[in-house]
Design a protein around this nucleic acid. Structure first.
Length: 283
DNA sequence: AGTGTCGCCTGAATGC
DNA sequence: TGCATTCAGGCGACAC
């Protein structure tokens, strides 16, 4: 379940391998992802050199020498592994796309649930493309400040938890880090987004940034489906305060779990929310 | 326009 | 044991 830290980690892992490399060939084993691989992927990217890698929201963007961008979204279960040159490739189930570089390195896109997305776009369409046009600010940008948050959430009747998951408000925050940030801010995930004071929202911003940057430092979180680009495990999951801790103590817990029942799990529009009812009461 | 719900998809975990 | 059900969740599509 890659969120911003996981995508950033994968992007950083790919950068040294891909930068200034020429794409030698592409093998599409299976194109019918939920959003199908473009049929002209091969002719768009083969022979091109990688000029730059970056990240926008949960997309990895690869700038190519022909002014096209290769965009990769890992969806729920997408993984990219790096097979060094002269290493024997052992095919795994769900290896949908192989990209071979001039260096001999092979990149393998594997995605059991096929929720991921891979497509190309002209770099000039970077802001107008429908995948990116609606996206809100990056959580580390200056634009993402208390004034912005307060004005965007004004009169919002939806819960703060759901609001944080909306990529039009701010990008990169998914279910795990929304839960963790609200815990750290002491905000009740159920309360209406429009009812939170500006001061409280102001405090939430550096907390979101802190949770995300600590997760990036730890190499992301390893859950059922996600690993770093080099196949090693991220370890931020060991730092969860509330996520996936139903009935257990929260991070800074000093409550009597036998009495309180510990971390609670509720479902908000089909998504699990984990929170500590004692520490998250702020409105 | 804003909000809520569903479907996509597979594998792991759980239930009977 | 084995089969069936539930759950995970990012995002697009759709309904109201």
């Amino acid at each position: 379940m890659p969120e911003l830290p996981e995508v950033e980690t994968v992007m950083r892992g790919l950068e040294p391998v891909l930068l200034n490399q020429r794409i030698r060939s592409v093998t599409m084993n299976r194109a019918d992802l939920r959003i199908p691989l473009p049929h002209d992927l091969q002719q768009t990217i083969v022979g091109q050199t990688v000029n730059r890698l970056h990240r926008r929201a949960k997309y990895i963007l690869v700038n190519l020498s022909n002014a096209q961008i290769l965009a990769v979204h890992l969806g729920m279960s997408g993984k990219i592994s790096i097979l060094p040159a002269k290493t024997n490739y052992i095919a795994e189930p769900h290896d949908h796309l192989l990209i071979d570089l001039e260096s001999g390195t092979r990149l393998i896109y594997n995605d059991p649930r096929r929720f991921g997305m891979i497509f190309t776009l002209p770099s000039e369409d970077r802001y107008s493309h429908k995948a990116f046009a609606h996206l809100g600010p990056e959580p580390f940008s200056n634009e993402f400040d208390a004034d912005y948050l307060k004005s965007k959430l004004k009169n919002k009747t939806t819960s703060i938890k759901q609001a944080l998951l909306d990529q039009r408000l701010v990008v990169g925050v998914g279910n795990i880090y929304a839960c963790e940030a609200l815990y750290q801010a002491g905000i009740d995930p159920k309360i209406q987004a429009g009812k939170i004071s500006k001061a409280k929202l102001a405090s939430l911003i550096p907390i979101i940034q802190d949770v995300l940057s600590r997760a990036i430092k730890a190499g992301g979180s390893t859950l059922k489906d996600y690993r770093k680009a080099d196949g090693e495990l991220g370890y931020f999951q060991h730092s969860f305060n509330v996520y996936d801790r139903k009935g257990l103590s929260c991070g800074n817990c000093d409550c009597n779990i036998d009495k309180t029942g510990g971390v609670q799990r509720i479902v908000q529009s089909g998504r699990s929310t984990f929170f500590c009812p004692k520490k998250q009461r702020t409105r």
